[in-house]
Nucleic acid binder design. Structure first.
Length: 494
RNA sequence: GCCUCCAUCGUCUAGGGGACCAGGACGCAGCCCUUUCAAGGCUAAAACGCGAGUUCGAAUCUCGCUGGAGGCACCA
């Protein structure tokens, strides 16, 4: 099915909202196929609807792709031989091609008012008919239509779709799909204001930009016959089409709504790519996770870097059925990729999150901390909770937390005093030098390691949960550690 | 309502007529390891939607049903 000839593919989002996981995956698959085949990945902005334009959306989109590591070869900002790459800058091109279609008899001007169309639709609804244009203006003579257009009468351009027969299209994932032509409406190609609508603009651009494979969301599948018909009306050969399954909400019941997306954030999740960055997820994890929603490599390999994916990706292993978003599995991948990082890299990436939490974290210390927090993190955002104490000027545990479960305050005091003596006597506070004498003390006292180390953990870090105790003490330094334990003794005395 | 697509453990999936009393992963439960939290290791429970047909043989092919999803704008 798929050879390895260099493809020309495009990701064609409209800047009408935030970049979500679904668009991220579409961009990713396009990118992967382009890199895999040594082809070209084009970014095209579909901004023909000026009313729905959201300021900053294009910027966030490009930022999101950059964060994920999905770089495009041609597009806004960097240009290319097939530009411009914003459809709003291509208005004249669509007008020209719409005219060609009218001249060739494949399209016609329609003078019906939005008002009339609305009434028509309502009646059709009432009669339980599918909403469609009744083709009134299709029957106008070309002469009359031309005269009214030249008289300046407001009009749209509609596609003259065949009224009988069938149209067969091909989708890479689904094979041949045949539809009855009578179910294909005379869709509007150009609006009254002269702007092209998606169906015309995308089709013309895909041809003009020499796109070989259209990989897009399956919400476009129903309009595929129309797009193919437009290509054919021009006498063009259509590209290969590949419609990706949709992402469903975690319950599997339908697509995610705006409301539900907002609720998600309260649980520390989001379907918006840049939110995930903010939440401390690694882009590597996002890529790995979404790549595997609708694509698989074999029956056991799940950990992939972007580079791995470029090497392994192919259209054959795509799955046509919808996939429910599963954030629990995402967390799993997030953890795997944190653990996969080089220590220096992890330190570097944690830095902004420590700073955001109000800690003046220096890179040298973060490099020391990284190995002991690495296997405990799912997101970078969790790092300051776990290891912020290293940067605190004052660590003040609550006195009652210094008393381990099943122990009296007096017993705890005794343990603290003896621990302090042992630690102070140790040549240095490294795991090698301090752990063995401490364990001897535990044995001598007839206690469990957890009891003694738990007390010390709270005394030294101020936390009940922390990275491994002796490693932490080494990073903190002898002086601070002893000061903390002395403080604990005083607190237990008082 | 109409059109189209989809259908394997709760979820993501492997599977493409015999290798499948269906494999992996997440999660869940239990156990091991253990100074907390993790990580890691082991074990368990857990699926071919239903019905016909084709075939010596069907999770795999065909049809029907059911269920789910998407689409039906002077949005993309």
């Amino acid at each position: 099915m798929e050879n390895n000839r260099p493809v020309r593919v495009r990701f064609a989002p409209s800047p009408t909202g935030r970049m979500h996981l679904g668009s991220g995956r579409t961009a990713l698959y396009n990118y992967l196929l382009a890199r895999k085949t040594g082809g070209t990945f084009v970014l095209r902005i579909e901004d023909t609807d000026r009313k729905r334009l959201v300021p900053g959306a294009e910027e966030e989109l490009i930022e999101g792709m950059k964060w994920l590591g999905i770089n495009f070869d041609e597009g806004p900002g960097i240009g290319g031989p097939y530009g411009p790459y914003r459809q709003s800058e291509r208005k004249a091109i669509y007008q020209e091609y719409a005219d060609k279609l009218v001249e060739a008899g494949h399209a016609y001007p329609c003078f019906c008012t939005p008002d009339r169309l609305e009434r028509m639709r309502q009646e059709q609804q009432k009669r339980k008919e599918p909403p469609h244009y009744d083709r009134t203006c299709r029957n106008l003579s070309p002469e009359e239509a031309k005269r009214r257009v030249e008289a300046g009468e407001p009009h749209v351009i509609r596609f003259k779709s065949p009224m009988e027969g069938t149209t067969t299209v091909r989708d890479v994932l689904r094979g041949e799909i045949t539809v009855e032509n009578r179910t294909i409406d005379d869709y509007i190609l150009v609006k009254t204001d002269g702007f092209a609508l998606y169906h015309l603009a995308a089709t013309v651009d895909d041809h003009l930009m020499d796109i070989s494979h259209v990989i897009r969301g399956s919400e476009w599948l129903p309009s595929l016959p129309l797009h193919v018909l437009i290509h054919r009306a021009f006498g063009w050969v259509e590209p290969e089409y590949c419609h990706l399954s949709v992402f469903l909400k975690p319950s599997g019941k339908g697509k995610m709504s705006k409301r539900e997306s907002a609720d998600l954030l309260k649980d520390g999740y989001s379907i918006y790519v840049m939110d995930l960055k903010e939440l401390g997820y690694l882009p590597e994890a996002v890529v790995n996770w979404i790549a595997l929603m609708g694509w698989s490599y074999d029956d056991h390999t799940e950990f992939f870097s972007l580079k791995d994916l470029v090497e392994k990706f192919s259209l054959e292993h795509l799955n046509p059925s919808p996939a429910a978003i599963n954030f629990t599995k995402f967390d799993h991948f997030a953890g795997l990729h944190v653990r996969n990082l080089q220590v220096e890299d992890l330190a570097q990436r944690m830095k902004p999150f420590f700073e955001k939490a109000g800690y003046a974290a220096d890179l040298d210390t973060l490099v020391k901390i990284a190995p002991i927090v690495q296997e405990r993190l799912v997101t970078l955002d969790e790092a300051p909770d776990l290891a912020g104490f290293f940067f605190k000027t004052e660590i003040l545990p609550a006195a009652e937390e210094l008393v381990p479960a099943g122990m009296t305050r007096e017993q705890a005091l005794d343990v603290a005093r003896q621990s302090l003596a042992v630690l102070a006597a140790a040549p240095e506070l490294t795991p090698e030098a301090a752990e063995a004498p401490m364990r001897e003390l535990v044995e001598k006292l007839g206690l469990k390691a957890g009891q003694v180390f738990g007390l010390l953990r709270v005394a030294v870090t101020g936390q009940k949960v922390s990275p491994p105790l002796f490693e932490s003490m080494m990073i903190m330094g002898r002086e601070r550690v002893l000061k903390q334990v002395e403080q604990a003794v005083r607190m237990l005395e008082g």
